[in-house]
Amino acid sequence: MKKALSAGVSIAALTSVAFAANSLDSNPNYVKLKNFKPNPAVTNEQCLMCHKAQDPGIVADWQHSKHAKAGVGCVQCHVVPKDYPTAFKAHPMQGKNWTVQIAVSSVTCAKCHAKEVTEYLNSGHARGAAQWLASNMGKHGFLMSKLAYNYENMKGKHPSLNGYSAKKMAAGIRKDNSVFASNQNNPRQADLGVANICVQCHGTTVKLDSQGRPDAATWPSDGIATLYPDGGVGNCLACHSRHKFSAAEARQPAACSNCHLGPDHPDKEIFESSVHGHIFDTNEKDYNFETGKQIPGKTLRAATCFTCHMSGINGLKATHNVSLRLKWNLWAPKSFLRTKGAETAGWAFWSHGGKIIPGKTILRGNPKAGNPQGPEAARAR
């Protein structure tokens, strides 16, 4: 374990790479939102008249954010055209051409953070939801569902089994069929199992009612690659919690260890049992996460997840593509080199503006996503 860790943390940063094949403008909703101007104009103060009393915690988080200091508030993130896919048609405050969206996706974030969203879409993070939702009637999707419903103890004959019986899902792994099917008459419990075991990390497909209210079974979701009706992929808030969206908070190891733990990818446990983890846990005062530029001896004493996978270090640039610095894919039963460059699943959904077409916009993605120059280049950086 120590040998594997020392190899992993020796990976240094990589300069940002432009991927000409994919463009944010390929999503028509992004283009619409980027060029949209509310009529009549609406201000953040109008929103705060109600939300200061109704949601004081949310408002306080925003007031302490860099967004607030820069003048970015409710309007910039929540006001959308009335015909926008996530428009909340029943909101009490509307204009001639605008209303409010409740479920805010990375399409909105990309208006200001185009570089970061582009890098994210090229990363393995972007396939998180599509990977386990894609074509579950196909071989790969079935195996991922089978793993979840057995290994993670999700039980019952339930619609999310995609037509498979509990008996078939249990075949070859479980022999306690009566226990396995214990929730088949309790779909709410089965839904909670899906939410707690899959959705909270991978994400899911957000569904809205006819008025644009999000379905409580699919939203809010902090999954890294939740799929939204406007073609948005991913939750920036998975790492930058709403509504403060703190970069310093997202650089903490805890932001990664929310999901990267357990027997299938024990990254949290490996880090915490390493010298790097011990130094961090006992000397947090020696770390400055307010900057993305990491300087050994000044902003940090030893490597963290962020240092190796995302930070700017030794003059190199920070990145939101967490696959760029990875030589190996280690989570599968047999490790393999990352030889396929940019991820594909996120762009497929993004470029089709949120249309749900299994096998076309909901793809398994590219498990070998890595550095476009190859795995040796990733390690060299």
Rank of each mutant, 00 (worst) to 15 (best):
G212W: 01
S178P: 01
N177M: 00
T108A: 15
H67C: 02
D176Y: 08
A103M: 05
A303S: 12
S311E: 11
K175S: 11
N22L: 14
W347F: 10
Y228A: 02
A90S: 14
A21H: 13
T205L: 07
L337A: 13
H78S: 04
Q184D: 14
K368Y: 07
A21W: 07
A302K: 14
N283S: 12
Y84V: 02
P85S: 08
D286L: 09
A53P: 05
A216D: 11
G365K: 10
A369Y: 09
E290H: 08
A21V: 02
P28L: 06
L147M: 10
A302S: 15
K334D: 06
H125A: 15
L14T: 07
C308K: 01
G232P: 01
G95N: 04
M169L: 15
A4S: 10
M1V: 15
A53Y: 09
W132P: 00
K298W: 04
A148M: 13
V17F: 10
E284G: 04
I362R: 13
V104Y: 03
A103T: 06
A129Q: 01
Q252G: 05
S335P: 06
K285E: 10
G223T: 11
V199Q: 06
T86F: 02
F306V: 01
A348G: 10
G341H: 04
C77F: 01
A302G: 03
H158L: 15
R213M: 11
C109S: 08
M93H: 04
F88E: 07
S16K: 10
G353S: 02
P375D: 08
A248F: 05
D267Q: 07
F336K: 06
K69Y: 06
I102V: 09
T86W: 02
S221T: 00
A20G: 10
T339M: 14
K3W: 04
A171S: 08
G312T: 03
K2V: 08
L133V: 10
N22H: 08
G297A: 04
K115T: 13
R338V: 03
Q373D: 11
V322T: 14
F280V: 08
T99G: 09
V107G: 07
K334H: 10
N35P: 06
T291S: 14
H64Q: 11
